[in-house]
Design a protein around this nucleic acid. Structure first.
Lengths: 330, 330
DNA sequence: CTCAAATAAGTAACCGGTTACACATAAACT
DNA sequence: AGTTTATGTGTAACCGGTTACTTATTTGAG
């Protein structure tokens, strides 16, 4: 491996000069710089980030913690984060927490041990001690925290919109999937929806789920139609669950959206491609990732940014699992 | 930050002894060890990986390079890799290449600069110079290489099976989506399919695609039915494309699988949930990730493992987009 | 009881960068 | 000309671990 010493020797200068050229700081004579740059190129030298990181006590790595990239919503967040980070020369150390506190803590520890400059986390435990103790910037993504900056979508409003649309489009026996109790955004959506349903006095049922896994979604979908066969509208906790419900409804021979309407949450890429395509509450996942990255970069560059959280707007996307309203059909 | 020196002082021993306790090597007296462990716990000390990595010239990080986690097939690979690595205390630095050689090269460089112990890559350029020059283990995933160990599915066989099934189940005007020319597995699948179609003398058309993005898939799906309205069977290059085709077919009022059969490739989690559910050639993505990680760990621990590649079996999954054969309906 | 081998623990060099500090020379200013 | 000030470059300490080497003590075989 070529080190800075090799380059120094080759160029006939000291290591300090090489370092100055690399970092574009301190005084370096124009001629010297050219010689050094030539040497770097000829030896095909790239500096060792680890050594740099040790002295500086900060790497060029960001820790990213997500619950489970197998859920298609999260890769979009991740891409947003990555793409923005890349622009600033930052890279990601990555981990799935599977919503386990232990795993989460282990990853955070690894991040710290590797001198990451910041952590972006989609955690269910934003108040935990191990987050409080961190001396590096933390941004919560798709999660809410009072302690720390966060980027999240307006889940409550999303829930409200979903319920309103359901009602406006004619459903009267609505089932609401609650989503895991410990996942804050799921609860916000749920509450938003219930709020509206209560206000308008529409009959509704609640189906609780413990996780966001696909298996679970499928099981709940089956149960749903057994327990509440009269249901004519389902507000799902996310698109995966909605698609599971849709699938089950069709399997039972129900007509969608005529017999039953379904609204998802997230707008994952595939929701457009199921048949009928899924009406949903869109969260701008990719942009949320980008925003989180942006915020992180601000925090890194300028550590006196005031605690700032960004709430992103949600939006109803009318597709094939909800009926067309009179004024829309013009 | 608590360093090894702080612990040494607190425990009243030298840093060497702390290090010996941590790494469980060299001689340490039982009593001393207890004192040190107590000190570590009380000071809440965790060793700095960066310093360790600098001296050892190897970190506990693995570089993972994928084309695009937004495609639901790749997160499964990633999870497989991650879960296996986690068991051995290894973590991931992660990047999406977007099939750009430049991006790929940049990530590889970052990996090397961070002293990763190995690289797992799903690259389109396995023969590139910058892979050859690497002195650390490289495992190609979902890709084939003659130079390096690789874990991949038997794409050709998959293609053959898809074509056979299509024919056995009665399609006679088959369209084959070719997939991006530079993506080896896509070409293997394609060739496998064409091989069988030619042998059996069934009419077929080829639709070429340049990328695996969803947009592209949708566009090709539309074109397909314009250019070849008589098509009664589609062999897609992956499940995303298959789902796009399915969606378009249904939009055009075609009956699936009565008028047209569709077979995908990958078996992403959602393919079971579209309606009708998607018949596909299953690749064991999660297991492939695990295998790649396993192979990597072998290569790290024992550098004289002979060049070994693992071909994983593929399997036809009969679902709703292909017709039921006589003998199956019993 | 003697002496080699095993056990225990400290000192300091080392990994590959960065930078404070020192020193030298050139340019700018009274 | 004499003194600041700016420019250019080298030396060596430092970041936080690991380990080769050294020294001291204990154990055990003959």
């Amino acid at each position: 491996m070529v080190t800075i010493k090799d380059v120094a020797k080759y160029a006939g200068v000291s290591v300090a000069t090489i370092s100055r050229v690399l970092n574009e700081n301190g005084y370096v004579h124009e001629d010297t710089r050219r010689v050094v740059e030539k040497a770097i190129k000829e030896l095909n030298y790239t500096p060792n980030e680890v050594a740099r990181s040790l002295y500086k006590r900060k790497s060029r790595l960001i820790g990213l913690l997500l619950p489970d990239i197998t859920n298609p919503y999260f890769p979009q967040l991740a891409r947003g984060v990555e793409d923005r980070m890349q622009q600033s020369g930052l890279r990601l150390i990555f981990g799935n927490s599977d919503e386990s506190q232990q795993k989460e803590q282990d990853y955070i520890q690894t991040f710290v041990q590797n001198n990451v400059v910041g952590i972006i986390a989609s955690t269910n435990f934003p108040g935990m001690d191990f987050y409080r103790r961190l001396k590096i910037p933390v941004v919560f993504l798709d999660r809410i925290s009072s302690d720390r900056p966060a980027v999240y979508a307006d889940g409550r409003e999303g829930g409200r919109i979903a319920a309103q649309q359901m009602i406006e489009r004619g459903s009267r026996q609505i089932a609401v999937l609650q989503g895991p109790a410990h996942v804050r955004p799921a609860q916000d959506r749920f509450q938003g929806a219930v709020e509206v349903l209560q206000d308008t006095g529409v009959t509704y049922e609640v189906v609780q789920t413990d996780s966001f896994t696909l298996d679970e979604a499928q099981r709940r979908a089956e149960e749903l139609f057994v327990s509440f066969p009269e249901t004519d509208g389902v507000i799902a906790s996310n698109d995966m669950a909605a698609i599971a419900v849709l699938h089950e409804a069709l399997r039972l021979g129900k007509k969608v959206p005529e017999d039953i309407q379904i609204i998802g949450f997230d707008d994952i890429p595939l929701s457009e491609l199921v048949s009928p395509s899924l009406s949903t509450i869109r969260q701008p996942a990719y942009d949320m990732g980008k925003q989180a990255a942006e915020l992180m970069i601000q925090l890194i560059e300028n550590d006196d940014v005031e605690l700032k959280s960004i709430q992103m707007p949600v939006q109803f996307i009318q597709r094939g699992t909800t009926r067309i309203k009179a004024e829309e059909s013009i």
